[in-house]
């Protein structure tokens, strides 16, 4: 008999002995006894389930904690390895920049010397040159000029990459600056029979920029546009103002940039394959320098391009 029922019978009927309890009640008491027993069984089952379940959750927690520690250690180790690798890369990069700077400086002086010497030869009145000699010297001058340009770009890239230059900001008429640059390019455009059109909103506010740096940037962009255009093609330059921003765009209808190479176009020393095929001479520094110049001015540069169709670069300045 269940102990609770036994206690209750003793209390209320004076006895728990079934023989002393009226027969007609015994079936009922049996049912009550069963109910008490089942209730105990149910309670025991629930408690057991709770205990086992809690144990399983604790075990799961412990395992998750342990796995978490392993993952965290892996993350720490890998972060450490990455940091070290990054430091090594930065050191390498710095050494490379220093090397470039030293080499460029070392080269510039003799190159400048060669330039002046060649110039004097061409202009000499006392010992005039034959046509053939002049042609050869002009060819040397061109090559020398290219080398000077490359050395200057390397020096620019180094200075910009290491942040070792300051902007000399001046209120600048950007329309006039761009017009000048287009004018400077006239020899190149004539050579390749390229037509440059320039349209602009009126008025365009003056911009606080370093005119030499911005000139360099637009020279680079226009040079690329002309270089990669088909002969007798057009290059459209446009300047407009919208929402306190001045946007200068340069569009050519030339070789375009392959889609899979577009993500790298502003990387130093990178040149797209079709650009290398079209124009083997080039060091891949130009666009990275242009980007750095614009960002130093608080501006941005982006582009759209479709291979074999057209490319447009957008330089955006905040007014």
């Amino acid at each position: 008999m269940h102990q609770v029922l036994e206690r209750q019978l003793k209390r209320f009927l004076g006895t728990s002995e079934l023989e002393k309890i009226p027969t007609e009640l015994r079936a009922f008491l049996q049912a009550v006894n069963d109910t008490y027993s089942h209730s105990d069984e149910d309670r025991a089952l629930v408690l057991r389930s709770l205990e086992l379940s809690s144990g399983e959750f604790a075990e799961l927690n412990k395992r998750l904690h342990s796995e978490n520690e392993i993952i965290e250690k892996k993350v720490r180790d890998r972060t450490e390895a990455l940091t070290k690798a990054n430091e090594e890369l930065q050191t390498l990069d710095k050494r490379k920049s220093e090397f470039l700077s030293v080499v460029a400086h070392q080269l510039r002086t003799p190159l400048t010397g060669i330039k002046w010497a060649l110039s004097m030869l061409v202009q000499s009145q006392s010992e005039p040159l034959s046509a053939k000699q002049k042609k050869l010297i002009i060819s040397c001058e061109d090559g020398n000029e290219r080398m000077i340009t490359i050395v200057n770009e390397m020096l620019h890239a180094d200075r910009i990459g290491t942040g070792t230059f300051e902007l000399a900001l001046v209120a600048t008429d950007i329309v006039a600056l761009i017009s000048d640059v287009i004018e400077e390019m006239s020899l190149l455009t004539t050579e390749r029979a390229i037509t440059i059109t320039f349209t602009h909103d009126t008025p365009i506010p003056t911009l606080m920029v370093d005119p030499e740096m911005i000139r360099f940037a637009f020279q680079n962009l226009l040079d690329n546009a002309i270089k990669y255009s088909q002969p007798h093609g057009t290059v459209e330059v446009r300047t407009e103002v919208r929402n306190a921003r001045v946007t200068c765009s340069i569009t050519d209808h030339g070789i375009g940039i392959p889609l899979d190479q577009q993500p790298y176009i502003f990387s130093r020393f990178f040149r797209a394959q079709n650009a290398i095929s079209a124009e083997p001479n080039g060091n891949g520094l130009g666009l990275s320098i242009v980007k750095s110049i614009l960002e130093k001015h608080g501006g941005t540069i982006r582009f759209t391009s479709e291979e074999k169709k057209e490319t447009t670069f957008y330089c955006v300045f905040t007014v």
């Binding site: 069984e41 025991a44 089952l45 057991r48 389930s49 086992l52």
Partner: peptide, 17 residues
């Protein structure tokens, strides 16, 4: 059997729980 404890003796019937 772990969850049923003593009631495991009643398997498969007690498995219905």
């Amino acid at each position: 059997k772990e969850y049923l404890g003593e009631q495991a003796n009643g398997l498969p019937g007690t498995g219905l729980l």
